[in-house]
Amino acid sequence: MGCFHSKSARQFPAQENTANLAAETAFTVSEVEALFELFRSISSSVVDDGLISKEEFQLAIFKNKKKDNLFANRIFDLFDVKKKGVIDFEDFVRSLNVFHPNASLEDKIAFSFRLYDLHNTGFIERPEVKQMLIALLFESDMKLADDVIETILDKTFVEADLNQDGKIDTEEWETFVKKNPSLLKIMTLPYLRDITTSFPSFIFNSNVDEI
């Protein structure tokens, strides 16, 4: 009250927005409201403007360590649905929806494909996979000789690149992940089932009557 910033940064989403998001995702209205508590905490960690910046996203993933990281950047870019350089609440809910245990396998496969298609070419290409492998080795302080990395890439592309054109298309990716379901483990966050228990304070800010 009395603060001209309070509307955008702090106000709970309008009832109809919450209801729409719940209708179009796997979340209930209460869960969308609980997600708003999480969103509010992340989006106010650096600047309390009701939007998640890349810096705030990285802080949330890596806690206190400031880290510029290929994978975190990629996830941020995919969450930034409207390509505004920030994540708004709607982007946040719709993106997390793919990670819901009840989200469809097709959505999880499609999102994971886009995650690895670093340059948005519509294909997962060998240089992209090599770039990600090198980033992973750097991040985890693991060292592998270049010929070992090439061997891993050879093996992966023999298995995944069925028409052997040097890149993995969406159909090849679908076949590959169905044969290797563990690859989709990162696409499900069991935590999302219990979001209202984790952020019970949503009850005090709720716009809906029947919780």
């Binding site: 992340i42 996830i75 492998l133 690859l183």
Partner: peptide, 25 residues
């Protein structure tokens, strides 16, 4: 052993993909 895994098995082990961190207060 890393060599016995495919590239995506390795990449998906990146800590940065662990979005559960988002929920830790």
């Amino acid at each position: 052993k890393p060599v016995s895994m495919n590239a995506f098995e390795l990449i998906s082990r990146s800590q940065s993909f662990n979005l559960e961190n988002l929920f830790e207060k």
